[in-house]
Every structure is written in C-alpha cells, then in structure tokens.
C-alpha cells in the first residue's frame, strides 16, 4: 500500500471540508473495496477521511412506505434490521447475500453505492426499486446515478448521506454468484412497484441496467413465464474467466425467471 494521510471526522460538513483540500483525497466508509484496492496499489489516495465516527450517517428510518438507510449502515445491519425485513424483505435478503459475514460486518451501503463495482449487489436493488440517493448537495434518482463501470453521478466534494427505497408491492433478488468472491456473475432484481414493474441487472455488463422488454411483459402479467422466453443480446456484456458474454445473457433470463418466482412466493 502507498502511504497516505489519515483523518477522522465527526460530521458530513467536516468531511466535505476535508474532501475539498485536494483531488486525491478519498472518503473511507467500511473500506472493504477501497483498502483491498489500495493494498494492490491500484488506488493511491493522498488522504483518507474516515467516516466511521459520523453519527449523522447512521440509522434506518421507515416513513410513509419509504425506507431510508444511512450511508454508513453496514450490510449486516441492513440484513438484520426488523424494519427493513418487514418493509422490503428482498432488500434485507440482498444485503445478507453480499460477500461473506465478516465483510458484511464492515462494508456499508454508501461505500458500495459510491464505488459502483459492476458486480456489486446494491446497484441492482437501487435501480430495481427506483431508489433515491441523497447527498450533502442534492437527491439523485438511481436511474441517473450509476454511470457505468466504477462511475457515478457524484461530483467532486459530494458525499452520499443516505439511500431511500420506496417499498414495493413485491420484489425479489436472485443472483448467480461466483463461489469464491460471492460477487454476482449475474444478479437480477425484480420489483412490482407503485410506478410499475422494474427489472434491474447487475454483474452482466459494465454497469447496472434495466430490461424494458421484461418490464413490459411483467406489467401485462407478473408471472415467470412472461420472462422465460425473453433473451437479451450478448453484445457489450462482460466476458471473462468466470463466464462468457453469451452465458451471462442466458443467466439474465434464468435469474429473472427465478426472481419473479421468488417475488410471487413472497
């Protein structure tokens, strides 16, 4: 790991001030991707601003059918939250399927969303549920937030403070995971929401994406057979040692079908 300066902050305002001091200043949430990247010398921040003690980034609130999760909430906390389990069981289950237990005890929703790993689970939940990312400056719809591999709509000095999820009528997430890393080779989040049916895919492409054809078919009839014969083109999909593009395309259909089945089971 390259050397860096370390600072702890107590508030979002303090973090924003520290972030403004240089281009290579980075925020440290749980660090489960960032520290690993730094150990491989793929990332070289000049300063790390640790958000571990920022109380205002903690907490889970349920108000009027919306679940708001503070950016520094750990995956294990979201998975175990009685409120999340009650309002959006699919979201609690997704959080409980990220990586392994030790990583879930450190990793945070804000960190995962800001990192936007193409194989991460949370982006599928945000886009699948039509969530809103709240920052210290504005609110950003999930559809506008994720910009492809490791890229987001976040601007310099912008800090994620929370993510708000409208509770759907029903939803489920199914992933075909890499057995070693537990990352999604393909993960599909299906939700029947007040604003219509949403189908979001992670792991398959350089970034999370929706499948309008499946959404249309499920809006007409929310049943597994509605998506069973919808194939997505493999052009532009990820292709690596774990799965070729055509296999990933195939998995999108299979995982979508299973997600619909799971959503109907409730």
């Amino acid at each position: 790991m390259y050397s860096f300066n370390y600072a702890r902050v107590k508030s979002v305002a303090e973090a924003a001030a520290a972030l403004a001091k240089g281009e290579d200043v980075k925020l440290l949430a749980g660090g489960q991707s960032l520290i690993a990247t730094m150990k491989l010398r793929l990332s070289k921040p000049s300063d790390l601003i640790d958000l571990g003690t920022v109380a205002e980034l903690r907490g889970i609130k349920v108000e009027g059918g919306t679940v708001t999760i503070g950016a520094m909430m750990r995956h294990a906390e979201v998975a175990a939250s009685a409120e999340v389990k009650k309002a959006i069981p699919a979201l609690a289950a997704l959080a409980g399927s990220i990586a392994d237990r030790q990583i879930r005890n450190m990793g945070t929703i804000g960190g995962s969303v800001a990192h936007n790993d193409p194989s991460a689970d949370y982006p599928a939940a945000l886009v699948g549920l039509g969530a809103t990312v709240q920052t210290n400056k504005r609110k950003i719809a999930a559809d506008d937030f994720f910009k492809g591999m490791f890229e987001t709509a976040l601007q310099a000095g912008e800090i994620i403070t929370a993510v708000s999820f409208p509770a759907p009528k029903r939803a489920a997430y199914m992933k075909f995971k890499n057995p070693a890393s537990r990352y999604a080779i393909v993960g599909v989040f299906v939700a029947e929401t007040a604003a219509g049916v949403r189908v979001a895919v992670t792991g398959a492409a350089p970034g999370v994406f929706r499948v309008p054809e499946m959404e249309k078919a499920l809006a007409a009839k929310f049943a597994p057979e509605s998506v069973a014969n919808i194939k997505i083109p493999d052009k532009g999909l990820n292709s690596d040692i774990h799965a070729k593009a055509d296999y990933r395309a195939h998995l999108v259909t299979v995982m979508a079908k299973r997600a619909v089945e799971a959503a109907l089971r409730g």
Partner: peptide, 24 residues
C-alpha cells in the same frame, strides 16, 4: 480478505483484520 484466517472481533462483530487499517 477471502480466507478468513485473520478474523478477529471488533466491538463484538467478526471482521477480517487484513482488510482494515489499524486506525479504523
């Protein structure tokens, strides 16, 4: 951060001590 041989408890939760800096 894959094998878990470095697992310790931090405030009662199991974590991988090779994947955080001491200051955390």
């Amino acid at each position: 951060a894959q094998c878990g041989a470095c697992t310790v408890h931090m405030d009662g939760r199991a974590i991988k001590s090779c994947n955080i800096v001491a200051m955390q």
